[in-house]
C-alpha cells in the first residue's frame, strides 16, 4: 500500500488509473476537505510556473567551460602519471623498513637470550639434582620389595607392611651441597 504522499504525487503526475484516482479524490474531499479539481488545477499552475521560470538558463562562457575542464584533465594527467612510480617507491620503502625492523628485532632477541637468559639457566643449582633424578627415573628399577596388608575391621585399622625396599644411597644428591642441609661443610 502506497503512502498518501506517494499517491498524491502519482495523482498529480497522472500515474493513477481511473479507480485509484476516484478513490484518492474521494479521500481528498472527505478527509482533507479539499476540492480535488481545484487542488489539481492549483498544483498544475505551480508546475507550469516552475517549468517556465526554471528552464532555459543560459550558461555563461560555454566554450571556456570546455577549455578550462580539459585543462584540468590534462593537469590531472600530468600529476597522476608520476604518481604511480612514487606510489610504488613508497610501497617499496615500507617493505624495506619493515624487513630491517624485523631483522633488528631478531638480532636483539638472540643477543638478549645469549647474554641474559642462557647463562642464568646454566647456573641454576637445581640442574645437578635434576640430572640425578632423571637418571634415577630413567634407570631400570630394581624390584626386590615385598608387601603385607592386614585389615582389622573391628579395630578399624589397616596395616601395610613393606619389606626389602632399597634405601636411598648416601651419595644421592650429595654432589649438590646446597640441597643437603646436614652435609658437612
Amino acid at each position: 500500500m502506497k503512502t498518501f504522499e506517494e499517491r498524491h504525487a502519482a495523482w498529480l503526475d497522472g500515474h493513477l488509473d481511473e479507480t485509484e484516482r476516484a478513490i484518492f479524490e474521494r479521500e481528498l474531499a472527505g478527509q482533507l476537505q479539499l476540492d480535488p479539481v481545484a487542488e489539481h488545477a492549483e498544483l498544475d499552475r505551480l508546475k507550469l510556473a516552475l517549468r517556465g521560470h526554471l528552464a532555459q538558463t543560459r550558461m555563461p562562457n560555454p566554450d571556456f567551460f570546455n577549455h578550462r575542464l580539459l585543462e584540468r584533465i590534462e593537469a590531472d594527467r600530468h600529476v597522476t602519471a608520476p604518481r604511480a612510480p612514487a606510489a610504488a617507491g613508497w610501497f617499496h620503502s615500507i617493505i624495506v623498513k619493515l624487513t630491517l625492523a624485523g631483522a633488528t628485532a631478531l638480532l636483539l632477541g638472540v643477543a638478549t637470550y645469549r647474554g641474559l637468559i642462557s647463562p642464568q639457566l646454566e647456573e641454576r643449582p637445581e640442574t645437578a639434582y635434576l640430572t640425578q633424578v632423571l637418571e634415577a627415573k630413567s634407570s631400570t628399577p630394581e624390584v626386590t620389595a615385598s608387601s603385607f596388608n592386614a585389615n582389622a575391621k573391628e579395630e578399624q585399622a589397616a596395616v601395610l607392611w613393606l619389606d626389602g625396599m632399597s634405601h636411598v644411597p648416601e651419595s644421592y644428591a650429595a654432589a649438590d651441597e646446597n640441597l643437603d642441609p646436614d652435609a658437612a661443610p
Partner: peptide, 9 residues
C-alpha cells in the same frame, strides 16, 4: 522521490 515531490510541491 514521490514523497519528496509531495512535500516540496
Amino acid at each position: 522521490v514521490m514523497s519528496r515531490l509531495f512535500y516540496a510541491r
